[in-house]
């Protein structure tokens, strides 16, 4: 049953990923990407990791993609832009795809070779409590570093948006003074 669910959800994820890459209309691509995130979240749920699943929806599908959709809606991009300019990227893409395939094969190989963990040890892993405990004891330093980085990003964004605005106001004032 769980296997069947996995194949349905994985198929959905792959189908959405393909449609995300192949659609010419950026909004359709964005919606497909949301589909990828949602099916991934469902797979996490079947793997008994509800916290990761919900955070996946909350952060990626709920917050980041909303901004992406927002920008696409406001820009109203053309649907059929010529892609001839990007021709030379095709061989690079093919090579990278091969590398990815090799990596996947290696992971398959490593997983089948690795010793199987005891079945009941993993029951608590996906729960909020265990994740929180791990984050604030074992992985405290990375968490703090990420926190500081995010704060820097926020402050940086504020400064950038402010600097953009001030000269404009001065220009307007100058123009008003000249008019008067």
């Amino acid at each position: 049953m769980v296997n069947a669910l996995f194949f349905i959800l994985a198929g959905l994820a792959i189908a959405s990923a393909i449609s995300c890459v192949y659609h010419k209309n950026p909004l359709y691509s964005a919606i497909s990407l949301i589909g990828v995130f949602l099916s991934l979240a469902s797979i996490y749920l079947t793997l008994a990791a509800p916290f990761i699943a919900v955070v996946q929806i909350l952060v990626y599908a709920g917050a980041i993609m909303v901004l992406v959709v927002f920008v696409i809606m406001l820009l109203n991009l053309d649907e059929d832009k010529p892609i001839t300019r990007l021709r030379y990227l095709f061989p690079i893409g093919g090579a990278l795809g091969l590398v990815l395939l090799a990596q996947t094969m290696f992971i398959f190989y490593a997983v089948t070779k690795a010793p199987q963990p005891a079945s009941d040890a993993g029951l608590e892993v996906g729960k909020t409590m265990s994740i929180g405990t791990a984050m604030y004891t074992e992985y405290l330093l990375p968490v703090e570093i990420v926190g500081v980085l995010l704060l820097m990003a926020i402050v940086g964004a504020m400064i950038m948006s402010r600097r953009m605005r001030e000269p404009k106001i001065e220009l307007v004032k100058k123009a008003e003074a000249e008019e008067a």
Partner: peptide
């Protein structure tokens, strides 16, 4: 009886924005 029910409700409501935004667009 979901372990993360509060987050679940918040996340599903945040996905609900798409309905309105896409309808408008």
């Amino acid at each position: 009886n979901l372990d993360v029910a509060v987050l679940f409700v918040l996340s599903i409501t945040s996905v609900g924005v798409y309905g309105i935004a896409l309808a408008g667009w």
